[in-house]
Design a protein around this nucleic acid. Structure first.
Length: 492
RNA sequence: GGCGGCGUGGCCAAGUGGUCUAAGGCGACGGUUUGCAAAACCGUUAUUCGGCGGUUCGAAUCCGCCCGCCGCCUCCA
């Protein structure tokens, strides 16, 4: 069985086959770095991270490109708005590139915490002005674009396939067009490839048409061509970018190159918060930093980044996802259950006796692996894949309870946790802080001293004193658990 | 107005013609265990899939109508 992906272009699930055997090029629309990343970014980039991880798991050699937009993305209509970076720069009294640098770092920081694998290449739009100018020149030469007053526009009527991705009809769009926003354009649907910059515009570059800056859609065409060639295997992005952004990318790229731009279009759905579109005016706009720290009035506590990740994986990437405090809370509980189980398996693995791995268990593990792969192959059904991880949790807990599994058996369980839950889903870590390290060793000793004190109190039936120790430790995030073979502790 | 999507147990969510009296998680309840807990384990928690019709031997899954919700169409991941 092989991977099937839903291709937005054909509106159907298709068997995935890369253009070059064994190699896959993935391009995903990255963030415009004018603010901290929010929950919407998390859903999008976690979804594509899982796609990339799974392609790697299947043995493909993947080149993952995700741009950083630091110029050209306007706040409003493509013809009249201001550049988002310029607006933020004015507000923060910084140079636009300083703003871009600051939020780019913030973005990577958040994505690292969500355990998203870093893209192989994170090209900046501002670093590819030369290439963008070249593409505009090509489009002018081929007659798909025209210059007007220092700006260059793409003439949509020249590209017959315009609208094929988003299912839009150019004639209807023209008929239903609102007031024409720019007299320079021949048709309202035409879009800017290059915009003339007024003298006081901070970000501008020289061009054959005078000083200016690139249109937003241009960067993705140029950078995906440059780093992945044509056609690219997979282009991902948010569903809201189907139109106009991706439609424009297709038009520019295919008009210029005369070959198919993208083989598989993958779009992920959007998030809502408490059932409504996330927006600054609704007071439900939650950044990842706020979610991780709990510093938002819609949240009752801080959430582990990987619990956020797990909530995202709990639903399908093409379904909308509603973030709410109860949903996050549930995800955190489930995440902790998985984490505690993995830790317990690893701990017992070191204590368990040697011996061949249990054949019946090995068979069960194999079945779980197959079920997991079948789910992932079906257009990345992470919801079912995650349910397999929970089946593995149950299997593992039973083994631990019986306390008879050999180290080899437990190792096989841990291996599956690592490969499926770790490599593919990114919710199981290779190592947990408590697993080792000098500080933790000291911590172990300190807590053991307290446990000894408490045990002494318990054996003389002084439960008040015993409970006091337990309660105080819990107050600082250490939970004591009395097991048949003694008291154990863990971090909350 | 145009385009698209959704409505499954208390909550989240998979399933899209028969194996579904519907996976999994969270929560709740009962039990085992415990000095009491915690954790873990076992069990219970939708004869039903927004409503009404229809197609079919058979529908949560297909069709029609209705109700409700959401997104895109201007920037957004």
């Amino acid at each position: 069985m092989s991977l099937k992906l839903y291709n937005s272009m054909t509106r159907s699930k298709e068997e995935f086959k890369p253009a070059r055997k064994g190699e896959v090029g993935v391009y995903v629309c990255g963030p415009t770095v004018y603010g901290h990343a929010h929950l919407g970014h998390a859903k999008s980039y976690v979804s594509f991270d899982v796609l990339v991880r799974y392609l790697c798991y299947l043995g493909y050699s993947v080149t993952y490109v995700q741009n950083i937009t630091d110029v050209g993305h306007l706040t409003d209509d493509a013809d009249q708005g201001e550049d988002k970076l310029a607006v933020a720069a004015k507000k923060e009294k910084k140079h636009p590139m300083a703003v871009a640098e600051y939020y780019t770092r913030s973005y990577f920081e958040d994505m690292d915490r969500l355990n998203c694998v870093r893209p192989d290449i994170s090209p900046r739009a501002s670093g590819h002005i030369t290439e963008q100018i070249e593409l505009v020149k090509t489009l002018l030469e081929k007659g798909y674009a025209y210059e007007a007053n220092g700006s260059v526009y793409f003439e949509v009527s020249k590209f017959a396939d315009y609208g094929k991705l988003s299912g839009r009809n150019v004639e209807e769009m023209l008929a239903g067009a609102r007031v024409e926003v720019s007299p320079e354009k021949r048709a309202p649907v035409d879009f800017a490839l290059w915009k003339k910059a007024e003298p006081n515009h901070i970000m501008q570059w020289p061009s054959p048409w005078g000083p200016g800056y690139p249109g937003w859609h241009l960067e993705c065409s140029v950078m995906s061509m440059k780093y992945l060639g044509q056609p690219i295997d997979i282009h991902g992005g948010g569903i809201e970018n189907k139109f106009p952004h991706h439609e424009c990318e297709i038009a520019q790229s295919e008009a210029a190159n005369g070959v198919q731009f993208v083989r598989y279009w993958v779009h992920n759905n959007m998030v809502t918060v408490d059932g409504q579109k996330m927006g600054k005016s609704l007071n439900n706009f939650i950044t990842l930093k706020q979610a991780f720290s709990g510093a938002h009035e819609r949240l009752t506590k801080s959430y582990d980044p990987l619990a956020v990740r797990q909530l995202i994986l709990n639903s399908h990437y093409r379904s909308p996802l509603d973030f709410s405090d109860p949903a996050l809370f549930a995800a955190q509980s489930g995440y902790e259950k998985i984490t505690e189980t993995v830790k317990a398996v690893r701990k017992q693995m070191h204590a368990a006796g040697e011996g061949e791995a249990d054949k019946a268990i090995a068979e069960e593990l194999q079945q779980l692996k197959e079920k997991f792969e079948a789910a992932m192959n079906d257009d990345l059904n992470t919801s079912v894949a995650l349910s397999v991880i929970f089946e593995l949790v149950r299997l593992a807990q039973k083994l631990l309870e019986d306390n008879a599994a050999t180290a080899e058996t437990l190792d096989a369980v841990d291996d599956l946790f690592s490969r499926l839950g770790g490599d593919c889903l990114g919710i199981v870590k290779d190592e947990y802080p408590q697993d080792g390290g000098v500080d933790d060793e000291m911590m172990d000793r300190l807590v053991d001293v307290l446990i000894e004190q408490r045990s002494a109190a318990r054996s003389r039936k002084d439960f008040a004193a015993a409970d006091a120790v337990r309660d105080k430790l819990e107050g600082i995030g250490i939970v004591l658990e009395d097991k048949p073979d003694g008291t154990q502790w863990r971090r909350k």
